[in-house]
Amino acid sequence: MGESAILVELPDAPAALALYRRLRTAQLPSVVDVVPAERTVLVVARPGSRAAAERWLLQAAAPDAPDTIPAAVTTTSGSAPVILPVRYNGPDLAEVADLLSLTPEEVVAAHTGELWTASFIGFAPGFAYLRAADGRLDVPRRSSPRAAVPPGSVALAAGYCGIYPRESPGGWHLIGTTDAVLWDAERADPALLAPGTEVGFRRAD
């Protein structure tokens, strides 16, 4: 992809996340950025280092590559899930329940009952695309986006759950709010959720 980047295609989101973890753990000096997405990982090399990054990537991604990274690193983040308290008072909770032929109570039960994993970050700094293993809460985007979604809004769309780090326009269904600070540039870890972070939701009220 251009003079200094390589786009790697993978079969699905878990495979993309696994490759992302391998590449981040390995920390190749010629690589500036590793960007996971739904079915790809983008590797951005330093200017003039694309060939070196490509050789290394082919080695690291080969199925028979000597596994220099412990298997545990590639399958889970290895740290405890982040637990986020949520007030399930979102304006779209009833609509989400209708779309899924569930009661609002059942939507909350499904949302708190699953363990979510941050597949990738996009849209805004710290906005994580969270996916659950069983994928029950799969609703489309709203037909008309909102001009302003308040920060901390917990939302569903396109098979993902997301939490708005700051006020922004948004087209996802809002089911609740959390007081957790998703993004703080002054923090040592600015993003509360990074790719691979596991997240559990708990009812706050």
Partner: peptide, 27 residues
């Protein structure tokens, strides 16, 4: 959605490309 770089020529459905500069979205 997939990762983007500066200089990427994205083609939306209207067929009129956008050249991404340095503040491009990451995906």
């Amino acid at each position: 959605s997939e990762g983007m770089v500066a200089g990427a020529l994205q083609v939306p459905p209207n067929g009129q490309p956008v050249v991404f500069l340095r503040d491009h979205p990451v995906t």
